Simulated scan of single mutants.
Amino acid sequence: MGAYINGFYVFSPVSDNDRAGILYVATILSLIFSVITLIVRYHIQRRTFGLDFWIIVAATVVALGQYAAIFAGLDNYALGKAVSLMSESDQLNAGRSAIASICLFLISNALTKCSVIFFMKRLFSTDNRTARLLCNGLLGAVGVWVLASILGLNIACGPSTKFALSDRCSGQITRWSVVATFDSLFELAIFFLSIILVVPLQMTREIKLSVVFAFSFRLVVAIFAIIHVYYVSQWSSSSDPGIATVYSLLWQQVELGYALMAATIPTLRSFIRAYEKAMGWESSYYIKNTNTRTANSTYQLSTMQTSRHEEEGAVFGLRRLSTSDKSPLRPDRPNYKAQIYGPGLHDVAEHLPRRTKSNGSGGSEEPIIRKDVEIQVSSEAAH
């Protein structure tokens, strides 16, 4: 496959009849960025893996299958070369690789949208029934769209028609235009849904803009979808579909890689940190380990019930921030003394309660709070 050009070894030389090297570069870069993004997402949510994380994992796994289909076509079936350099079997197998990559691309792209929607659902819909309904409705629409897209692009368009010079699959421009239109509409819907859910919240305008700005990165996916359709149209009218396919598949890699990255951007600290503080939460991955105890003060606490936000995992496992202050929050022995002076109060003193320190702490090995209250009542005659 490789060749020496001017004394340098070139893995996949690019020429007028061979553009496989361009597709190699685009696919490898998209693969690298996708894997790095998943590692970053794991680092962000390593304490509490919500459903949005597992969906982006599934999207990345499907994307790996898409990359594998491209590499298989490039390595074994002359994908990326002119039709004149492809045998009949190569044309058929390269067509299968291209169609497999398209189907996996649609599935992975849809899963990235679902991951963002599930993240929004956890972020906004804890006490908002309308937000849950909107997110669930959008999830259902994405599911219908991806199934309809796979069927619509492959009905009466088999692998044998992918690189045919005549009798090429008809209607591909219309089919891809419909697919890309809904692809773009879903990205717009996600963006406007973030605005609808953030605006009613009682927080500063700067915080709201920061959250909405995080979701606005998804709008670039719509731009890549439109560019992708343009190169599909070039393939449909090209005299050499083998070369024209390279550029449609190239923009497919660009859109997929960016869609995977844009699904993680809203979870970054710089965008939601202020939102969490405004809501009274702290992300679990910002909580430091505060199990270190000093030699002079040890507090053993009984098991307590978790808060509602902890049970629901409102923002990928948000929890109340525990303190690491070394000074005791509750003194070991507070003393409260009250002395009352006045005429005729001898009888009152007999009926006033006298508090002493508690003998237990309801489950702890040591008393957590000890409280001594001493009340003295006396009467002095006025002079």
Score class of each variant (00 low, 15 high):
residue 122 R to N: 15
residue 218 R to Y: 03
residue 305 Q to F: 03
residue 256 L to E: 09
residue 180 A to E: 07
residue 350 E to D: 12
residue 293 R to E: 15
residue 214 A to I: 02
residue 145 W to K: 03
residue 177 S to Y: 02
residue 110 A to N: 07
residue 253 Q to N: 15
residue 320 R to E: 14
residue 188 L to R: 03
residue 205 R to G: 06
residue 156 A to M: 05
residue 160 S to C: 00
residue 155 I to C: 01
residue 288 K to T: 11
residue 311 E to T: 14
residue 281 W to E: 05
residue 76 N to H: 12
residue 223 I to F: 15
residue 282 E to W: 07
residue 114 C to N: 07
residue 363 G to W: 00
residue 358 S to Q: 15
residue 96 R to W: 06
residue 131 A to H: 02
residue 239 S to I: 10
residue 97 S to I: 00
residue 252 Q to D: 09
residue 153 L to C: 07
residue 6 N to C: 07
residue 62 V to Q: 04
residue 99 I to T: 14
residue 249 L to Q: 15
residue 326 K to R: 12
residue 338 A to Y: 07
residue 382 A to Q: 08
residue 111 L to Y: 05
residue 244 A to T: 07
residue 349 A to G: 14
residue 178 V to F: 12
residue 175 R to P: 02
residue 300 Q to A: 11
residue 245 T to K: 10
residue 1 M to S: 09
residue 273 R to H: 10
residue 138 L to R: 00
residue 69 A to H: 00
residue 168 R to T: 00
residue 255 E to R: 10
residue 172 Q to P: 01
residue 263 A to F: 01
residue 326 K to E: 12
residue 273 R to T: 09
residue 322 S to F: 07
residue 260 L to M: 10
residue 238 S to E: 05
residue 279 M to T: 06
residue 183 D to V: 01
residue 381 A to T: 13
residue 193 L to S: 05
residue 133 L to C: 05
residue 26 A to C: 14
residue 195 I to H: 05
residue 188 L to F: 13
residue 74 L to T: 01
residue 358 S to N: 11
residue 10 V to T: 05
residue 193 L to T: 10
residue 305 Q to S: 14
residue 338 A to T: 11
residue 293 R to W: 03
residue 179 V to W: 01
residue 327 S to Y: 10
residue 69 A to V: 02
residue 343 P to H: 05
residue 51 L to M: 11
residue 252 Q to R: 07
residue 128 N to F: 02
residue 236 S to N: 14
residue 246 V to P: 09
residue 363 G to M: 02
residue 121 K to T: 08
residue 321 L to M: 14
residue 152 G to T: 10
residue 206 E to D: 11
residue 237 S to F: 10
residue 348 V to G: 04
residue 312 E to Y: 12
residue 81 K to F: 01
residue 120 M to Q: 11
residue 207 I to S: 09
residue 142 V to R: 00
residue 260 L to E: 07
residue 176 W to E: 01
residue 206 E to F: 03
residue 346 H to W: 07
residue 192 F to V: 15
residue 114 C to M: 14
residue 177 S to R: 05
residue 367 P to A: 04
residue 4 Y to R: 07
residue 72 A to T: 08
residue 37 T to D: 06
residue 324 S to D: 13
residue 316 F to W: 08
residue 327 S to G: 01
residue 75 D to H: 08
residue 238 S to V: 04
residue 205 R to Q: 11
residue 32 I to F: 12
residue 210 S to D: 12
residue 151 L to A: 10
residue 185 L to A: 11
residue 110 A to F: 08
residue 126 T to Q: 14
residue 322 S to P: 08
residue 172 Q to R: 03
residue 275 Y to M: 07
residue 206 E to C: 06
residue 6 N to Q: 09
residue 312 E to P: 01
residue 207 I to E: 04
residue 326 K to S: 11
residue 123 L to G: 06
residue 10 V to G: 01
residue 75 D to G: 04
residue 352 L to V: 15
residue 330 R to D: 11
residue 293 R to F: 03
residue 235 W to S: 01
residue 140 G to D: 09
residue 374 E to I: 06
residue 228 H to C: 03
residue 329 L to K: 08
residue 295 A to D: 13
residue 45 Q to F: 02
residue 13 P to S: 03
residue 104 L to H: 07
residue 308 R to I: 11
residue 61 V to M: 06
residue 183 D to Y: 08
residue 121 K to P: 05
residue 318 L to E: 12
residue 373 V to W: 03
residue 200 P to F: 04
residue 203 M to K: 06
